[in-house]
Design a protein around this nucleic acid. Structure first.
Length: 480
RNA sequence: GCCGCUAUGGUGUAAGUGGUUAACACGCAGGCCUCUCAAGCCUGAGAGUGCGGGUUCAAGCCCCGCUAGCGGCACCA
């Protein structure tokens, strides 16, 4: 394959949603796989709906996902003269014409047709204007757009790498606008001109553009340019099979960051929405594997449904697969946000910290879990779950005495480690004729406020002798 | 309304050139392990491949029709 050049070309009319992120990811994977170039281009020609903040938001999303681009970001708003020149060229070559029709009048007609369920197509009024009439109106200063002259007969076809041969009769297309009367290009013009100018080899984008592609093919031909290879990816729908929208909750990729998703897991999950390596048993894939396996052939045609449960599962899998060292920066950021971070965790307490991360990651589904179920390890201020108290601390009147006795024995235990704490606890259980589980569960809740934790001796050692003894006595004192 | 695309358990995907009881993963139910919960391991329920025809000895794979969903049809992208 000659040099691969692909692009992600969002319009900054909203944040980076999962659909856009998936499209960006496909382009990025394809570029990395073929050692090609990944270009970021901002399609901000809709001055009303675009904003610099949205550009920032999209870039933030791409950065978080780790989708780095090799060129750009190019802003279409800075290339307006270029599009105008191209549009004028088409007028000169007879492929386009000036249109003086009033947009508002056309909109009225269009709406009327729609209301009556009739098909409406621009009649081509200005297409038939004489040269003299055109010159007269220009001289009179009439506002004018430029429309493309769609051939009246024939079909336009192209081979999509995902959907196969797509064919449309030209008569079903209307003479679409290339340049608006305010001098701004429409999408069809700018996208074709830029893809050609930037020598894009493969256009990988959402299937919502499939129906528009024939118009663009027509434009490439009119310009005398070779079209790129097109590959359309199926859309991502919500669980109700409707297009993803606010009512499905998190649409922005940064919302997944905030929920504690790993970029690695998000890339994995997004990659599998509308693409498959062909082996359904291998789903947990690191990014390097995604790059290796990615191909346009694996893109499916049916719309994909976003399954949040599966995304969570996948995140948990990645969490478990990553070492504490790899997880360190993510967990640190999470603790910092909660005000639980201490510099010593990066210094002399780092071994302890990494060990705790290893303990917690087994049960974690998101990074948030490190500051929720992880809280008792990093702070003395953690919530006590009433149900856990009921279940583990109020089971028997003996619990109070057992906790106090255990605290006493732990206080003078030397050394204080996994083996010795287990010996002491089990010894106490045997002496008093209670099941070890009763003491274990009571200690679990006394130390963490929860009924669900890692193995109890890990918890005891992680929390440490001093805090363990203090918490046991404190909880025992509260029991009557 | 017109044009286009798609259709395999609840979800995501498999099932080279049509060939036995449609596979895997998530989820779900139950069990083992066990100090809880996860993880892991074992077992199970769940689709006859949108519907209806056709071709064929044989169809999820081919053909036709229908239905549904989605997308497009803007001086939005």
């Amino acid at each position: 394959m000659s040099h691969v050049r692909v692009r992600f070309a969002p319009s900054p009319t909203g944040y980076l949603h999962v659909g856009g992120a998936r499209t960006a990811l496909f382009n990025w994977l394809f570029a990395r796989k073929h050692e090609g170039t990944f270009i970021l281009r901002i399609e901000d020609t809709d001055l009303e709906r675009s904003s610099p903040e949205m550009i920032e938001g999209i870039i933030e999303g791409l950065r978080w996902l780790g989708l780095d681009w090799d060129e750009g970001p190019y802003l279409q708003s800075e290339r307006l003269a270029f599009y105008r020149a191209r549009a004028e060229e088409l007028v000169a070559s007879g492929w386009a014409y000036y249109c003086f029709c009033d947009p508002e009048e056309l909109a009225v007609k269009r709406q009327q047709a729609l209301a009556e369920k009739r098909t409406w197509k621009y009649e081509g009024t200005c297409r038939r204007l004489s040269a003299g009439e055109v010159a007269r109106r220009i001289a009179a200063g009439h506002p004018r757009a430029i429309r493309f002259k769609v051939p009246e007969e024939g079909v336009t076809r192209f081979a999509d790498r995902v959907y196969g041969e797509i064919e449309v009769r030209n008569e079903s297309l209307e003479d679409f606008v290339l340049l608006r009367s305010d001098g701004y290009p429409t999408y069809h013009l700018s996208v074709v001109v830029d893809d050609a100018d930037m020598r894009i080899s493969h256009v990988i984008r959402g299937a919502d553009h499939l129906s528009n592609t024939p118009k663009q093919i027509l434009l490439y031909r009119a310009f005398g340019w070779e079209p790129p290879i097109f590959a359309h990816a199926p859309l991502i729908l919500g669980p109700d099979r409707q297009r993803l929208s606010k009512r499905h909750g998190a649409m922005s990729v940064t919302a997944y960051r905030d929920m504690g998703f790993l970029p690695e897991a998000m890339r994995n999950f997004l990659a599998l929405l509308g693409w498959s390596p062909g082996d359904p048993s291998r789903e947990i894939l690191r990014t390097s594997e995604l790059i290796e396996l990615f191909s346009l052939e694996g893109i499916s045609r049916a719309n994909a449904i976003f399954n949040f449960e599966k995304a969570l599962w996948m995140n948990a899998e990645h969490l478990r697969a990553m070492s504490a060292t790899e997880l360190f920066p993510f967990v640190r950021a999470e603790l910092e946000k909660e005000g639980l971070w201490r510099e010593e965790y990066a210094q002399d307490r780092q071994d302890w910290f990494l060990w705790v991360v290893d303990l917690l990651k087994v049960r974690a589904r998101t990074l948030r879990d490190f500051v929720t179920s992880g809280r008792p390890y990093f702070s003395d201020d953690f919530p006590m779950d009433p149900e856990a108290i009921q279940k583990n601390l109020r089971t028997s009147s003996a619990v109070k005495g057992l906790l106090l006795e255990l605290a006493d024995r732990f206080e003078r235990l030397e050394p204080f480690d996994l083996q010795t704490t287990e010996q002491v606890l089990r010894g106490l259980a045997e002496e008093r004729g209670v099941k070890a589980g009763v003491i274990i569960n009571a200690v679990r809740t006394a130390l963490t406020g929860s009924a669900v934790t890692p193995g109890i001796f890990d918890v005891i050692v992680a929390i440490g002798r001093e805090r363990t003894v203090r918490r046991l006595r404190h909880v025992a004192a509260a029991l009557c």
